[in-house]
Design a protein around this nucleic acid. Structure first.
Lengths: 150, 150
DNA sequence: TATTGTTATACTCTATAACTATA
DNA sequence: TATAGTTATAGAGTATAACAATA
Protein backbone atom coordinates (compact mmCIF):
# COMPACT_ATOMS: atom_id res chain seq x y z
CA UNK A 1 0.00 0.00 0.00
CA UNK A 2 1.35 3.35 -1.03
CA UNK A 3 -0.93 5.91 0.58
CA UNK A 4 -0.61 4.63 4.12
CA UNK A 5 -0.67 7.49 6.53
CA UNK A 6 -0.04 5.48 9.67
CA UNK A 7 -2.88 6.14 12.09
CA UNK A 8 -0.51 5.38 14.94
CA UNK A 9 3.21 5.88 14.49
CA UNK A 10 5.45 3.39 16.23
CA UNK A 11 6.49 4.77 19.61
CA UNK A 12 9.85 6.46 19.52
CA UNK A 13 11.29 4.66 22.54
CA UNK A 14 11.32 1.14 21.09
CA UNK A 15 12.53 2.53 17.77
CA UNK A 16 15.50 4.25 19.35
CA UNK A 17 16.14 1.21 21.51
CA UNK A 18 16.41 -1.01 18.46
CA UNK A 19 18.88 1.37 16.84
CA UNK A 20 20.85 1.40 20.06
CA UNK A 21 20.93 -2.38 20.26
CA UNK A 22 22.08 -2.58 16.67
CA UNK A 23 24.85 -0.11 17.44
CA UNK A 24 25.92 -2.23 20.39
CA UNK A 25 26.17 -5.28 18.15
CA UNK A 26 28.14 -3.38 15.54
CA UNK A 27 30.46 -1.96 18.17
CA UNK A 28 31.13 -5.39 19.62
CA UNK A 29 31.93 -6.74 16.18
CA UNK A 30 34.14 -3.81 15.31
CA UNK A 31 36.07 -4.04 18.56
CA UNK A 32 36.40 -7.83 18.67
CA UNK A 33 39.75 -7.94 16.83
CA UNK A 34 41.23 -5.43 19.25
CA UNK A 35 40.44 -7.52 22.31
CA UNK A 36 38.85 -4.50 23.98
CA UNK A 37 35.22 -4.41 24.95
CA UNK A 38 33.07 -1.32 24.58
CA UNK A 39 33.78 -0.01 28.02
CA UNK A 40 37.51 -0.49 27.77
CA UNK A 41 37.43 1.30 24.46
CA UNK A 42 35.49 4.18 25.95
CA UNK A 43 37.96 4.50 28.82
CA UNK A 44 40.96 4.55 26.48
CA UNK A 45 39.22 7.10 24.31
CA UNK A 46 38.56 9.36 27.28
CA UNK A 47 41.97 8.77 28.81
CA UNK A 48 44.45 9.15 25.99
CA UNK A 49 43.94 12.84 25.14
CA UNK A 50 44.18 13.84 28.81
CA UNK A 51 46.32 11.30 30.59
CA UNK A 52 47.20 10.80 33.30
CA UNK A 53 43.77 10.81 34.93
CA UNK A 54 42.47 9.45 38.21
CA UNK A 55 39.89 6.68 38.22
CA UNK A 56 37.43 9.11 39.69
CA UNK A 57 38.01 11.60 36.88
CA UNK A 58 37.51 8.86 34.31
CA UNK A 59 34.32 7.68 35.98
CA UNK A 60 32.97 11.23 35.99
CA UNK A 61 33.93 11.78 32.35
CA UNK A 62 32.13 8.65 31.25
CA UNK A 63 29.24 9.00 33.64
CA UNK A 64 29.69 5.58 35.16
CA UNK A 65 30.02 4.39 38.71
CA UNK A 66 33.42 4.33 40.36
CA UNK A 67 33.00 0.69 41.23
CA UNK A 68 32.54 -0.05 37.56
CA UNK A 69 35.68 1.89 36.73
CA UNK A 70 37.71 -0.24 39.13
CA UNK A 71 36.82 -3.35 37.14
CA UNK A 72 37.54 -1.74 33.77
CA UNK A 73 40.94 -0.48 34.89
CA UNK A 74 41.66 -3.92 36.36
CA UNK A 75 40.98 -5.41 32.97
CA UNK A 76 42.94 -2.83 30.99
CA UNK A 77 45.85 -3.25 33.38
CA UNK A 78 45.78 -7.02 32.95
CA UNK A 79 45.95 -6.46 29.20
CA UNK A 80 48.90 -4.12 29.79
CA UNK A 81 47.07 -1.33 28.01
CA UNK A 82 47.27 1.04 30.99
CA UNK A 83 49.29 1.40 34.16
CA UNK A 84 48.17 2.28 37.66
CA UNK A 85 50.53 4.19 39.90
CA UNK A 86 49.98 6.35 42.94
CA UNK A 87 49.70 10.01 42.08
CA UNK A 88 52.74 11.66 43.76
CA UNK A 89 50.70 14.78 44.46
CA UNK A 90 47.98 12.86 46.30
CA UNK A 91 48.78 9.29 47.03
CA UNK A 92 45.13 8.37 47.50
CA UNK A 93 44.72 8.79 43.76
CA UNK A 94 45.74 6.36 41.07
CA UNK A 95 47.35 8.01 38.07
CA UNK A 96 46.09 6.02 35.09
CA UNK A 97 48.21 6.19 31.98
CA UNK A 98 48.10 4.27 28.70
CA UNK A 99 51.12 2.20 27.76
CA UNK A 100 52.65 2.66 24.30
CA UNK A 101 51.21 -0.71 23.35
CA UNK A 102 47.84 0.40 24.72
CA UNK A 103 47.89 3.56 22.68
CA UNK A 104 48.78 1.67 19.50
CA UNK A 105 46.08 -0.91 20.11
CA UNK A 106 43.56 1.84 20.72
CA UNK A 107 44.42 3.58 17.45
CA UNK A 108 43.81 0.34 15.56
CA UNK A 109 40.55 -0.23 17.44
CA UNK A 110 39.42 3.32 16.77
CA UNK A 111 40.06 2.89 13.05
CA UNK A 112 37.84 -0.19 12.90
CA UNK A 113 35.25 1.36 15.16
CA UNK A 114 34.86 4.53 13.13
CA UNK A 115 34.65 2.51 9.93
CA UNK A 116 31.79 0.49 11.42
CA UNK A 117 29.95 3.66 12.39
CA UNK A 118 30.35 5.09 8.91
CA UNK A 119 29.04 1.85 7.42
CA UNK A 120 26.06 1.94 9.74
CA UNK A 121 25.17 5.50 8.79
CA UNK A 122 25.88 5.01 5.09
CA UNK A 123 22.20 4.39 4.16
CA UNK A 124 21.44 7.96 5.24
CA UNK A 125 23.98 9.50 2.91
CA UNK A 126 26.55 12.01 4.05
CA UNK A 127 24.10 14.83 4.59
CA UNK A 128 21.55 12.54 6.21
CA UNK A 129 24.13 11.13 8.59
CA UNK A 130 25.13 14.64 9.62
CA UNK A 131 21.52 15.64 10.14
CA UNK A 132 20.93 12.51 12.21
CA UNK A 133 23.90 13.20 14.44
CA UNK A 134 22.86 16.83 14.79
CA UNK A 135 19.30 15.82 15.66
CA UNK A 136 20.56 13.58 18.46
CA UNK A 137 22.57 16.45 19.89
CA UNK A 138 19.66 18.84 19.56
CA UNK A 139 17.33 16.49 21.39
CA UNK A 140 19.79 16.04 24.24
CA UNK A 141 20.57 19.72 24.59
CA UNK A 142 16.90 20.64 24.59
CA UNK A 143 16.03 18.40 27.50
CA UNK A 144 17.79 19.14 30.79
CA UNK A 145 17.31 15.49 31.75
CA UNK A 146 17.63 14.97 35.47
CA UNK A 147 21.30 14.07 36.09
CA UNK A 148 20.51 10.58 37.33
CA UNK A 149 20.90 11.44 40.98
CA UNK A 150 17.86 13.70 41.03
CA UNK B 1 43.66 22.40 9.87
CA UNK B 2 41.40 25.02 11.34
CA UNK B 3 41.21 24.65 15.05
CA UNK B 4 37.49 23.91 15.21
CA UNK B 5 37.20 20.76 13.07
CA UNK B 6 36.30 18.12 15.64
CA UNK B 7 39.16 15.63 15.63
CA UNK B 8 36.90 12.91 16.99
CA UNK B 9 33.11 12.93 16.87
CA UNK B 10 31.36 11.52 19.90
CA UNK B 11 30.62 7.82 19.35
CA UNK B 12 27.11 7.21 18.17
CA UNK B 13 26.31 4.47 20.68
CA UNK B 14 26.47 6.60 23.83
CA UNK B 15 24.67 9.40 22.03
CA UNK B 16 21.77 7.18 21.06
CA UNK B 17 21.77 5.62 24.51
CA UNK B 18 21.33 9.03 26.13
CA UNK B 19 18.42 9.83 23.85
CA UNK B 20 16.90 6.48 24.68
CA UNK B 21 17.27 7.04 28.42
CA UNK B 22 15.67 10.45 28.08
CA UNK B 23 12.77 8.89 26.21
CA UNK B 24 12.34 6.33 28.98
CA UNK B 25 12.13 9.11 31.55
CA UNK B 26 9.62 11.03 29.48
CA UNK B 27 7.54 7.92 28.89
CA UNK B 28 7.45 7.13 32.59
CA UNK B 29 6.34 10.66 33.36
CA UNK B 30 3.72 10.68 30.64
CA UNK B 31 2.29 7.33 31.75
CA UNK B 32 2.39 7.97 35.48
CA UNK B 33 -1.15 9.40 35.70
CA UNK B 34 -2.55 6.36 33.92
CA UNK B 35 -1.11 3.90 36.40
CA UNK B 36 0.34 1.83 33.56
CA UNK B 37 4.04 1.29 33.19
CA UNK B 38 5.79 1.27 29.83
CA UNK B 39 5.41 -2.43 29.31
CA UNK B 40 1.76 -2.52 30.22
CA UNK B 41 1.17 0.37 27.84
CA UNK B 42 3.01 -1.47 25.07
CA UNK B 43 0.93 -4.60 25.63
CA UNK B 44 -2.34 -2.69 25.53
CA UNK B 45 -1.20 -0.89 22.41
CA UNK B 46 -0.39 -4.18 20.68
CA UNK B 47 -3.47 -5.94 21.99
CA UNK B 48 -6.33 -3.54 21.43
CA UNK B 49 -6.35 -3.41 17.61
CA UNK B 50 -6.17 -7.21 17.35
CA UNK B 51 -7.76 -8.67 20.43
CA UNK B 52 -8.20 -11.28 21.56
CA UNK B 53 -4.61 -12.50 21.41
CA UNK B 54 -2.74 -15.26 23.19
CA UNK B 55 0.10 -14.42 25.55
CA UNK B 56 2.46 -16.06 23.13
CA UNK B 57 1.22 -13.91 20.26
CA UNK B 58 1.67 -10.79 22.36
CA UNK B 59 5.15 -11.81 23.40
CA UNK B 60 6.11 -12.39 19.79
CA UNK B 61 4.61 -9.08 18.69
CA UNK B 62 6.57 -7.15 21.29
CA UNK B 63 9.71 -9.23 21.01
CA UNK B 64 9.82 -10.05 24.69
CA UNK B 65 10.13 -13.28 26.59
CA UNK B 66 7.02 -15.30 27.38
CA UNK B 67 7.92 -15.34 31.04
CA UNK B 68 7.95 -11.57 31.00
CA UNK B 69 4.54 -11.54 29.37
CA UNK B 70 3.09 -13.65 32.17
CA UNK B 71 4.03 -10.99 34.68
CA UNK B 72 2.69 -8.12 32.58
CA UNK B 73 -0.64 -9.84 32.01
CA UNK B 74 -0.79 -10.64 35.72
CA UNK B 75 -0.42 -6.98 36.45
CA UNK B 76 -2.90 -5.81 33.82
CA UNK B 77 -5.40 -8.36 35.06
CA UNK B 78 -4.97 -7.16 38.63
CA UNK B 79 -5.73 -3.65 37.41
CA UNK B 80 -8.79 -5.04 35.63
CA UNK B 81 -7.54 -3.67 32.33
CA UNK B 82 -7.56 -7.06 30.61
CA UNK B 83 -9.15 -10.45 31.13
CA UNK B 84 -7.68 -13.93 30.79
CA UNK B 85 -9.90 -16.75 29.67
CA UNK B 86 -9.16 -20.10 28.07
CA UNK B 87 -9.41 -19.96 24.30
CA UNK B 88 -12.33 -22.27 23.39
CA UNK B 89 -10.54 -23.32 20.22
CA UNK B 90 -7.38 -24.40 22.05
CA UNK B 91 -7.69 -24.52 25.78
CA UNK B 92 -3.92 -24.36 26.28
CA UNK B 93 -4.12 -20.77 25.15
CA UNK B 94 -5.25 -17.78 27.14
CA UNK B 95 -7.42 -15.38 25.19
CA UNK B 96 -6.37 -11.95 26.40
CA UNK B 97 -8.91 -9.20 25.93
CA UNK B 98 -9.05 -5.61 27.14
CA UNK B 99 -11.93 -4.60 29.39
CA UNK B 100 -13.97 -1.51 28.48
CA UNK B 101 -12.30 0.28 31.40
CA UNK B 102 -8.93 -0.90 30.13
CA UNK B 103 -9.61 0.42 26.68
CA UNK B 104 -10.70 3.79 28.02
CA UNK B 105 -7.69 4.05 30.31
CA UNK B 106 -5.42 3.18 27.42
CA UNK B 107 -6.89 5.89 25.23
CA UNK B 108 -6.20 8.47 27.91
CA UNK B 109 -2.69 7.14 28.41
CA UNK B 110 -2.03 7.20 24.68
CA UNK B 111 -3.14 10.81 24.48
CA UNK B 112 -0.63 11.86 27.14
CA UNK B 113 2.06 9.63 25.72
CA UNK B 114 1.82 11.02 22.20
CA UNK B 115 1.82 14.56 23.54
CA UNK B 116 5.05 13.85 25.41
CA UNK B 117 6.66 12.46 22.25
CA UNK B 118 5.63 15.52 20.28
CA UNK B 119 7.08 17.78 22.96
CA UNK B 120 10.31 15.83 22.92
CA UNK B 121 10.67 16.14 19.15
CA UNK B 122 9.53 19.75 19.02
CA UNK B 123 13.09 21.20 18.96
CA UNK B 124 13.61 19.51 15.60
CA UNK B 125 10.64 21.18 14.00
CA UNK B 126 7.96 19.28 12.11
CA UNK B 127 10.15 18.45 9.13
CA UNK B 128 13.12 17.62 11.31
CA UNK B 129 11.05 15.33 13.48
CA UNK B 130 9.81 13.50 10.41
CA UNK B 131 13.35 13.17 9.05
CA UNK B 132 14.55 11.87 12.39
CA UNK B 133 11.84 9.24 12.54
CA UNK B 134 12.51 8.25 8.95
CA UNK B 135 16.25 8.02 9.60
CA UNK B 136 15.64 5.61 12.49
CA UNK B 137 13.53 3.40 10.23
CA UNK B 138 16.08 3.56 7.44
CA UNK B 139 18.88 2.51 9.77
CA UNK B 140 16.89 -0.43 11.08
CA UNK B 141 15.77 -1.60 7.68
CA UNK B 142 19.27 -1.37 6.25
CA UNK B 143 20.78 -3.66 8.85
CA UNK B 144 19.48 -7.22 8.99
CA UNK B 145 20.45 -7.38 12.66
CA UNK B 146 20.67 -10.93 13.92
CA UNK B 147 17.21 -11.69 15.40
CA UNK B 148 18.55 -12.16 18.91
CA UNK B 149 18.45 -15.95 18.76
CA UNK B 150 21.14 -16.14 16.09
C1' DT C 1 5.43 -35.88 21.19
C1' DA C 2 4.81 -30.89 20.92
C1' DT C 3 2.96 -26.54 22.73
C1' DT C 4 0.86 -22.87 26.18
C1' DG C 5 1.30 -20.97 30.19
C1' DT C 6 3.54 -21.08 34.66
C1' DT C 7 7.05 -21.27 38.21
C1' DA C 8 11.67 -21.47 39.91
C1' DT C 9 16.31 -20.52 39.01
C1' DA C 10 20.42 -18.28 37.25
C1' DC C 11 22.72 -14.72 35.16
C1' DT C 12 24.04 -9.80 33.97
C1' DC C 13 24.44 -5.25 35.00
C1' DT C 14 24.58 -1.72 38.05
C1' DA C 15 24.11 0.70 42.36
C1' DT C 16 24.80 0.87 47.64
C1' DA C 17 27.42 0.21 51.81
C1' DA C 18 31.26 -0.71 54.27
C1' DC C 19 36.41 -0.93 54.67
C1' DT C 20 41.54 0.96 53.92
C1' DA C 21 44.74 4.27 53.21
C1' DT C 22 45.70 8.62 52.66
C1' DA C 23 44.75 13.69 53.33
C1' DT D 1 36.56 14.64 59.10
C1' DA D 2 36.61 13.83 54.25
C1' DT D 3 38.17 11.57 49.91
C1' DA D 4 40.14 7.73 46.39
C1' DG D 5 40.05 3.34 45.68
C1' DT D 6 38.52 -1.27 46.78
C1' DT D 7 35.52 -5.04 48.09
C1' DA D 8 31.28 -7.27 49.23
C1' DT D 9 26.47 -7.12 48.84
C1' DA D 10 21.94 -6.32 47.06
C1' DG D 11 18.75 -4.87 43.63
C1' DA D 12 16.48 -4.61 38.95
C1' DG D 13 15.92 -6.76 34.77
C1' DT D 14 15.99 -10.59 31.83
C1' DA D 15 16.85 -15.20 30.10
C1' DT D 16 16.94 -20.51 30.88
C1' DA D 17 15.03 -24.78 32.56
C1' DA D 18 11.74 -27.60 34.35
C1' DC D 19 6.76 -28.59 35.13
C1' DA D 20 1.44 -29.06 34.37
C1' DA D 21 -2.30 -29.00 31.29
C1' DT D 22 -3.76 -29.63 26.75
C1' DA D 23 -3.35 -30.85 21.93
Amino acid sequence: MTSTTPPAAEPLGPLVKKVHLRLLELSDEALAPSGFDRREYAVLRALIPHEPLSQQALAALLGVDQTTMVAVIDSLEAKQAVTRRPDPADRRRNAIEATPAGRAAFRRAEHDFLAAERAFLAPLGDAGAERFRAALHTLLESTPAAPKGA
